[in-house]
Amino acid sequence: MRLINRHPGRAARLFLGSLPFLILVVAYLVASAARLADNPGDKLLPALSSFAQAIETMALTPDRRTGAYLLWSDTWASLTRLWAGLGIATAITLVMGLAIGVLPVMRALLAPVVAFASMVPPLALLPILFIALGLGETSKIALIVIGVTPFLIRDLSLAAAALPREMIVKAETLSASTWLIALRVVLPQVMPRLLDSLRLQLGPAFLFLIAAEAISADSGLGYRIFLVRRYLSMDIIFPYVAWITLLAVAMDLGLGGLRRLMFPWWGLEGRR
């Protein structure tokens, strides 16, 4: 049988899928044990027990100074910023993306400036944002909005423009107005695409969030990582990185599920 036609069974798939994770964990444990044997106080590659202790301190013990549970207060602060940023970006995208996709006049007016704006590296704007909007929450949320919105708008307007011309003509022959066509024909068909591109933008959104928190904050996941970096607390940094990854994966799955729930007819994987 050709290799291209050999499909692993269920058990083999599970094994193959977990193999890279296993290799990473074993490699870590070996390196960590070697360093700890050399210097029991080593902070670079802590033992698993140190992780457990750090997680206990951060997630289950109230902070001595503020009485807050740091992991949860950091998570809440970060997610508030992230959701605010993504929410604003989505709202702007719906209005502008639809306008650009549906109306040739708006396309002529806005498409070039959006294309231009999407090429500005958002992190390079950070110093300007901090001066213009202060060091508070506004500048952090603004960075996420600026970083994510142009991409979302371009994607949405491309999706709208790619709808079959016949569909629009058909709606027109049924005497639908421009407003009605945008709302009832175009919008339902681009919404699933918007949810999917939002999923793809989760990574960049977290990147912008952490970059902003690293510069000035008093809570947040990125803040904590860059704070404890000062004294090389890998026992806190690793669990935080894992936790951020987990949050991003959960949001990705959530948005995917939401799309399937709201638009079951859309795409090849949808229910028939």
Partner: peptide, 8 residues
Amino acid sequence: VINTADPD
């Protein structure tokens, strides 16, 4: 106390 990066 607000943690702020020194270059900024």
